[in-house]
């Protein structure tokens, strides 16, 4: 993988703006995610965290503007599936799993891009089992559920399937996790955080979006904070803990949000 002594930016956004009618949901956000690190993006509800991910992953082509660079290559404006092939993979707060097909197939779909020739070849001579999918299932502790449909799993396990699907992408360079801990209880969240740390230790680069300060402060290497679409603070967990702007946003001194 990479050389950990020289952390370079896997993902860098510059002056990213998302405009909905008169509302600026994301306003001029420039930030970086370094290789092999777990970067946190926090902010109160409605701060524009999910919108930021949507914009970066190409789901808001009509509303977003700015620059998104993946390992130094400008990728802004590419379609979502193209970005996925390029290595920008994501999960969803609302999971959005493929409910009709097995957990294994959920992961397999993300494995490879399908060309016309590839599809035909596969039709006449079906592929073999993908070893990498087995690895990921094992990594996430899902190997016993490979043949099940996602609807048969617990909420925590379903979250992991979402992570696994994003990890399975053959070319994944960075994983954007949208509130993966939402809906989990305290102990599940702590356990989930450990899984994420495990992924980072394996060399993966992650961006974790959440409003659970506990989780983010515990597991992240670097944290950015959005409030009303603007980047108001960045720093290490220790710095963020003592940053008056962060405290204000979370304790409501600057006026609450909806």
């Amino acid at each position: 993988m990479s050389n950990p002594s020289a952390p370079d930016a896997v993902l860098r956004t510059e002056h990213l703006v998302v405009q909905f009618g008169g509302l600026r949901a994301v306003n001029d956000v420039s930030l970086e995610c370094s290789r092999g690190q777990l970067t946190g993006l926090i902010g109160p509800n409605g701060a524009g965290k999910t919108t930021f991910i949507d914009a970066v992953t190409g789901f808001l082509p009509d509303n977003a503007s700015g620059s998104v660079a993946l390992e130094g290559v400008e990728v802004f404006g590419r379609s979502p599936h193209r970005l996925s092939h390029d290595g920008l993979t994501r999960t969803w707060q609302t999971l959005e799993l493929f409910d009709d097909i097995s957990v294994r197939s959920n992961l397999e779909i993300a494995r490879e891009r399908l060309s016309l020739v590839g599809a035909l070849a596969d039709f006449f001579r079906p592929r073999r089992r993908d070893a990498r999918v087995d690895e990921i299932l094992e990594l996430l502790g899902l190997e016993d559920f490979a043949a099940h449909e996602p609807r048969e799993l617990s909420q925590g396990q379903r979250k992991l399937v979402g992570v696994g699907r994003a990890l399975a992408s053959a070319s994944s360079k960075i994983l954007l996790l949208d509130e993966p801990a939402a809906g989990l209880d305290k102990s599940e969240t702590a356990w989930f955080g450990e899984q994420l740390r495990g992924l980072v230790d394996e060399g993966h680069t992650l961006l974790l979006v959440d409003h659970d300060m506990g989780l983010v402060l515990n597991v992240c290497d670097q944290i950015h904070m959005l409030v009303f679409g603007e980047l108001v603070a960045s720093g290490s967990p220790a710095e963020m803990r003592s940053d008056p702007k962060v405290i204000a946003a979370y304790l409501g001194h600057s006026g609450g949000s909806a």
Binding site: F59, P80, H81, S84, T89, W92, F98, D100, R165, S169
Partner: peptide, 13 residues
């Protein structure tokens, strides 16, 4: 069929 958005995010054209 299950989810167009998620399919696109998983790299499906």
């Amino acid at each position: 069929r299950a989810n167009e958005r998620a399919a696109a995010a998983a790299g499906v054209n």
